[in-house]
Write a protein that binds this DNA or RNA. Structure first.
Length: 559
RNA sequence: GCGCUUGUAGCUCAGUUGGAUAGAGCAACCGCCUUCUAAGCGGUCGGUCGGGGGUUCGAAUCCCUCCAGGCGCGCCA
């Protein structure tokens, strides 16, 4: 049950009825009922909800907005929940409600507990979230970490909002980079065994490549040395991919991220899926041949240029595989497909959307979230990162240095499209400057109150016999109001793909709780007040914990 | 050159899809611990929403145009 949604319906209903009534008496003329937009005013003095219908309708009704608003207000049925209706500014109608509209949320949080905040907004629609999908040729870096935190949190939120969610990692285990990887592995392998062979110029210079080969030598010794190079590379790559992938999987698991499906690009080659996809494209008229290569007629869908699907050497491009992959996603019946990509891939967005169209699916059901890159700061200086030279901070090192909770919070705190400056010192600092601790501290503080209460023989009362109307301090009402917002907030963050809203919500809620804490004493001798506040405090605990958990963070009971 | 994207307080960022006097955290300054965790609270200071035009009752938000940063424009992935 969503109380905010409920009251919104009441108000919009009352406005609609008032408009009809005014039309019946001939006071207002209009063709059709407009959709009534309700907003929550920034200023408290403007009431709990406000509408601008009088302004939007002014033209249609041929009346000035304030006059129109007066006519509407005269016909509003105040029921037993509406305390006051005011006309303000250019023609806003402001609604102030009796406090008691909020109170039912208090027992509801107790009853739904870890499900509080969930909703049916997604109506069981099947959504796939693909994120990280890092090359299995190296270690996870900061960009991957951001994608992991955002993708995992978004998936959690979608699930809470009533979607049927599948989390997926696309393994780029095919193509030129794998060739290149193989050459690098081979060179390192032979070098480690004392052979003087050159290292490929475009190869993977990272120390982890050598490390992988050291592991193989420890296991199998020099048995690959006498082999023919093609077979050798094949075996080395097979070993390395397996090792790298399980490393990636473990790093992500430590970061609190797991997947439902690990999808191999190579499998699209092996299964014939790419060939089938090309046939589909051909049947739909999007393919032609030129200079020995097979091309996708992207220009016919508004692109600037066409794209190669199969090179003249007969090997399909990454793009061809990606089309097959996206076709596969929709073939599997997902209603909504979300990709989280680095902003450096933004050029591919319209291309893949057109490709989705070309294979016969609705590209509106594909969303690509682009993440801006992460800049690392330490001691006020930018930490330079270069993948080519293997000089970069890995996800493992990040988790080691600042901890999982701080890292995830910092990534989720900002919108995906904002350039993220990650301050390692700040994330690590256990001070008031660090928002992670601010939020977690609120939770720990609550747990402390509840412990103290228990020691004094005060339990959180069962919800029935509690009189919530004693909770009328502004700090209490604001806190309850925030708690009541959670289901909407989650649904909105999920459907709009804006996980950073939850970090903000968490900070707002923590701030409201801290404020309540300093203004209102929980453990008083006055039983009625104490009981009501114990419920409010325990509700705050539940909501904080649920929000933290949606972001993959722990909710400490002591700090 | 073409395209995408960002530009909001000293710093890092929000901004409820076009609403009322543009917000938060940090930094700075001033207060508050004999009582449930001061990793906290209250207050002050801080703005040409990159610039300029336009659309309308109303613009940080939509359109145009400049300026600045980031990124993309391979038979790479």
């Amino acid at each position: 049950m969503n109380f905010v949604e409920n009251i919104r319906r009441h108000i919009t209903g009352a406005i609609g009825a008032a408009l009809e009534a005014a039309r019946n008496t001939g006071e207002i003329n209009f063709e059709h009922l407009p959709t009534v937009a309700l907003e929550v005013p920034r200023e408290k003095q403007h009431g709990d909800f406000a509408t601008n219908v009088a302004m939007t309708m002014a033209k249609q009704a041929r009346m000035n907005p304030r006059q129109l608003a007066e006519k509407i207000v005269a016909h509003i049925d105040r029921g037993d929940w509406l305390k006051d209706v005011q006309i303000a500014g250019p023609g806003f109608i402001n609604f102030t409600l009796h406090h008691h509209w909020l109170y039912p949320v208090l027992p509801a949080v107790q009853q739904t507990d870890d499900r509080y905040g969930a909703s049916q907004a997604g109506a069981g629609k099947r959504v796939q979230v693909e994120f990280v999908s890092a090359n299995p040729t190296g270690l996870l870096h900061m960009g991957n970490a951001r994608g992991a935190a955002l993708g995992d949190t978004l998936a959690n939120l979608l699930r809470l909002a009533g979607f049927d969610v599948t989390k997926e990692f696309y393994i780029n285990d095919a193509g030129n980079q794998i060739e290149n990887f193989a050459k690098s592995l081979e060179a390192r392998y032979l070098q480690l065994l004392g052979q003087d062979v050159p290292f490929p110029e475009e190869g993977y210079h990272g120390e982890d490549v050598a490390e992988t080969m050291r592991g193989l030598i420890a296991k199998d010794g020099d048995k690959y040395v006498p082999m023919e190079t093609t077979l050798r590379r094949e075996l080395l790559v097979k070993y390395a991919l397996q090792e790298k992938l399980s490393g990636i999987r473990e790093s992500l698991a430590r970061f609190g991220v797991d997947y439902d499906i690990w999808f191999s690009e190579q499998s699209l080659h092996d299964s014939g899926a790419i060939r089938e996809t090309l046939e589909t494209l051909r049947a739909n008229g999007y393919i032609y041949e030129n200079e020995g290569a097979l091309w996708f007629k992207a220009t016919s869908l508004g692109e600037e240029k066409d794209e190669v699907l199969v090179r003249s050497n007969g090997i399909p491009t990454y793009f061809a595989a990606d089309i097959a992959y996206h076709k596969n996603k929709f073939d599997r019946g997902f209603d909504w497909v979300i990709n989280i990509w680095g902003a450096d891939h933004h050029g591919h967005v319209s291309r893949i959307k057109n490709a989705v169209k070309a294979v016969g699916y609705n590209s509106e059901n594909l969303d690509v979230i682009l993440m801006q890159l992460v800049r690392l700061f330490k001691g006020g200086e930018i930490v330079r990162m270069s993948k080519r030279t293997g000089q970069y901070i890995t996800l493992d090192e990040l988790v080691e240095e600042v901890g999982k909770d701080a890292a995830r919070f910092f990534f989720v705190m900002r919108g995906a499209d904002s350039h993220l400056d990650f301050d390692l010192d700040l994330a690590k600092s256990q001070s008031s400057e660090n928002p992670v601790y601010y939020v977690q501290y609120a939770h720990a503080r609550i747990c402390s109150i509840l412990r103290t209460a228990k020691d004094a023989g005060y339990e959180v009362p069962s919800v029935d016999g509690v009189d919530y109307s004693v909770l009328d301090h502004p700090a209490e009402l604001s806190l309850i109001r925030k708690i009541a917002d959670l289901p909407d907030e989650i649904a909105r963050a999920a459907t709009q793909m804006e996980p950073h809203r939850m970090a903000r919500y968490a900070m707002d809620l923590a701030a409201l709780f801290h404020s309540f804490y300093t203004h209102c004493r929980v453990l008083t001798d006055e039983k009625a007040l104490r009981d009501a506040r114990l419920v409010l405090v325990d509700d705050s605990r539940i909501v904080l914990r649920n929000v933290l958990s949606s972001m993959g963070l722990t909710a400490p009971e002591r700090m």
